[in-house]
Simulated assay, not measured.
Amino acid sequence: MPAVGVLSRADPVPPGIAAQLEYFQGGGDACGFGLSNFAVAVRNRPDLDFMAAPDVLDVCIYGYAPDGDVVVNIFDPSGKHTESRTFSPATLDSLNAFPFRRIHSDPSGRYLIEATQNGLTVSTVIEVRPAPTPQFIGYVNDHQGLADEGGFIWMKPGGTVRLAVGGYKPNSTVQIRIYHNPHTRESDGVTVMDYLTSHPVTVDSRGGGIWALKTEPSDPGECYMLDSELVTRRMYPAPDAPEAPSIRWQLTLCLIDRPF
C-alpha cells in the first residue's frame, strides 16, 4: 500500500489559525541601484543591524569590471577561511547577489567578506547573532551549490524539505503550518492558499535546529506554503514608501513531478 504523506492530509483548521493566507508572488532587484566603484556590501534586513541566524542575506557586489573573475572569500569570527566562490562578470550580471547563509549552530560574531578582482580587494563585515525571536529559512542549495534564498524550494515529490529554525523557546515543540492550493479569492481577486495541516518542530536547548519533512511520491504535485504565526519580518520598502512593512514570513515549496 503506498505511503500517505503529510502533504496528502486535509485537517480541520485549528482554533485561532487562519483558514487562508495571502500568497505573495513577486520579488525585485536584490541589490538595487548600487555603487559605481568596486565594492561589496551585505544587504541586511531593514529592522536589524545584524544578521539574526538562521537567515540568508544578499551579498551585493558593485562596480565590478567587465573582464576578470570576482573571487569572494568569507572568514568566520576566529579568522578561519570558511567559503570561497568565483564568479564571472556575466554570472554576477544574472545572479545579482551572492547568498550568505548562517544557522543557529554557526559561530556568532563578526564575519569578514572579501571580494577580489584584477588584483583589487574590497571587503565588508557582518555581525552574526542568534535570532532573538522565532525564525526559519529553507535549508537547501541551488544548482550552483550556493545557499538558496531561504524562502523558496522546489523538488520532485518524494524529496525531503529541510528548514533551519532558531529563536524559539529552548527544548520546545512548535507547529509549522502548511497551506496549499494557490487560487484567486473571488471576493477581492487576491491569491490565497488554504490551510492543509500542521507538523511539529522540536528545537534543542538553544532554541534551534534543522527540521525535516519527508514528502512522498504520491503527494500532490502542487505548491505549498510553510508558515508559523510566531514569525514576522519587516521587509524592504518600495522606493517611495516611508518605511518597510511587517509581514508574516513564509516559505514556498513546489513539488514538480519531472526530472530536474
Rank of each mutant, 00 (worst) to 15 (best):
1 M>T: 14
3 A>M: 11
7 L>K: 13
12 P>I: 02
12 P>N: 02
16 G>L: 09
17 I>L: 11
18 A>F: 03
21 L>T: 06
25 Q>A: 02
27 G>F: 14
33 F>S: 10
34 G>Q: 08
36 S>W: 06
37 N>M: 05
40 V>K: 04
41 A>W: 04
44 N>P: 01
47 D>N: 12
48 L>Y: 06
52 A>L: 02
52 A>C: 08
54 P>D: 08
55 D>Y: 09
57 L>N: 12
58 D>F: 13
59 V>R: 11
61 I>C: 14
61 I>Y: 12
62 Y>R: 07
67 D>S: 15
68 G>N: 12
70 V>L: 14
73 N>V: 10
78 S>W: 01
79 G>F: 05
80 K>D: 10
81 H>C: 01
82 T>A: 07
83 E>F: 03
84 S>T: 11
85 R>S: 09
85 R>A: 14
85 R>H: 13
86 T>A: 12
91 T>V: 09
92 L>W: 04
92 L>K: 10
95 L>E: 06
95 L>M: 08
104 H>Q: 11
104 H>D: 13
106 D>M: 11
108 S>Y: 10
109 G>H: 10
110 R>G: 04
111 Y>M: 15
112 L>I: 13
114 E>P: 07
115 A>H: 06
119 G>A: 12
121 T>R: 12
121 T>M: 12
124 T>Y: 06
125 V>T: 14
126 I>A: 09
127 E>Y: 03
127 E>C: 03
127 E>N: 12
128 V>L: 04
129 R>P: 02
131 A>W: 05
133 T>V: 09
134 P>D: 09
135 Q>N: 08
137 I>K: 02
139 Y>V: 03
139 Y>Q: 09
140 V>T: 13
140 V>D: 13
142 D>Y: 05
151 G>D: 15
151 G>H: 09
156 K>H: 03
158 G>M: 02
160 T>C: 01
162 R>D: 02
164 A>N: 05
164 A>T: 11
164 A>E: 06
165 V>T: 15
170 P>Y: 00
175 Q>G: 06
175 Q>F: 00
182 P>Q: 02
183 H>Q: 12
184 T>K: 14
185 R>I: 10
189 G>A: 08
189 G>V: 05
189 G>D: 03
190 V>P: 03
194 D>M: 08
196 L>H: 01
196 L>I: 06
197 T>Q: 00
199 H>F: 07
201 V>W: 02
203 V>A: 04
211 W>Y: 15
212 A>M: 15
214 K>L: 02
215 T>V: 11
216 E>N: 11
217 P>G: 04
218 S>R: 13
219 D>Q: 10
227 D>L: 01
230 L>Q: 13
230 L>G: 01
233 R>S: 10
235 M>L: 07
238 A>Y: 09
240 D>Q: 13
240 D>L: 15
241 A>T: 03
242 P>Q: 04
242 P>Y: 00
244 A>Y: 11
244 A>P: 15
249 W>H: 14
249 W>A: 12
250 Q>L: 00
254 C>R: 05
255 L>P: 03
257 D>H: 03
258 R>I: 06
259 P>H: 11
260 F>P: 01
